[in-house]
Design a protein around this nucleic acid. Structure first.
Lengths: 157, 157
DNA sequence: ACATAAACGCAATATTTTTGCGATCCACTC
DNA sequence: GAGTGGATCGCAAAAATATTGCGTTTATGT
């Protein structure tokens, strides 16, 4: 992933991050480029991996996933094999929306999306109690999702 | 947000969540609907708020935000005014990518995206030390972002 | 069985994206 | 300081995609 981004790129990124369906001619007006130039830049940004993907954000409630839970996990061994196996068990689980490997009091932070508590309970059995490398974990239940997403502060600072 | 989603809706949601740029005729083939029907369903799902928005996911590294940090926060008072003010101070900060209000050992979980430690340091001054309602907080530094995003497990279970 | 509303497919239309082409702008060489 | 190569541009044509009118079908409630 090379490439230094110029001011046009950054403004385009900020815009498509906000709304990926803004037509390229509107983007062009906004940043003062032709539609074609916008198109080519977006294509390049995609190929370079600057834009990882385009996605529709779906309301969790609407599809039955009304419960968000955050778990912190400490592992027994940070030996690479064990660690990777544990990490993988987390990332492949569809209900694990996010997984961070962290330095600090805990080794992993996980964000779960589930339909109800019982479902989370089952997941803890499988992912935590069922994994000898998980030493301990702690659960935080989200009462509100005040801000979510993957938005980056482009052009903020 | 009324509406119960049928099997078509769910499959469309799963698809556009995966890749929002899949043409509607391809979606139609995949789920066995005409392009027009796909179009009308997606439009309806958008209007109903089931699809919250369309967005481009940008690689943090590519725009200089190479550091992800997770912070847990305990507040002094959960009195509604104070709580809301604190919550708001978090959510309006562009570097706070995510903010959850939680039950459990901590009251808030925040995900920060920053360029370097010093930037996080400044943010703690402003958001935590500068807020009398923040009793204590803890910082976890992400060494790797193993799974990120807002993907929901549609049709997984 | 029947009326009504909702959703469908087809095909025309509108919008958006993509590309060919010549022009322009730099950075570098000679 | 003119010449060359590469990158990017804008314009306009072409291709792809999204949207809509319309007649038909399907589901629902009486």
């Amino acid at each position: 992933m090379n490439s230094q981004l110029d001011s046009y790129d950054l403004r385009l990124l900020a815009a498509v991050q906000q709304d990926a369906r803004t037509p390229q001619n509107e983007l062009g007006e906004a940043v003062n480029l032709s539609t074609a130039a916008v198109n080519r830049r977006l294509k390049r940004l995609g190929e370079e991996g600057v834009i990882e993907r385009y996605t529709a954000v779906i309301a969790p409630d609407a599809v039955g996933y009304g419960l968000t839970i955050i778990a912190t996990v400490e592992v027994e061994s940070e030996q690479i094999d064990q660690l990777d196996a544990t990490r993988r068990s987390f990332t492949v689980c569809p209900h694990v929306q996010q997984c961070y490997y962290t330095a600090g009091e805990w080794d992993f932070v996980l964000v779960f999306v589930v339909q109800h508590m019982e479902q989370y309970n089952e997941l803890t059995r499988k992912l935590f109690f069922g994994n000898a490398n998980v030493k301990r974990f702690k659960t935080l239940v989200a009462m509100s999702r005040d801000k979510v997403g993957s938005t980056l502060p482009i052009g903020e600072n």
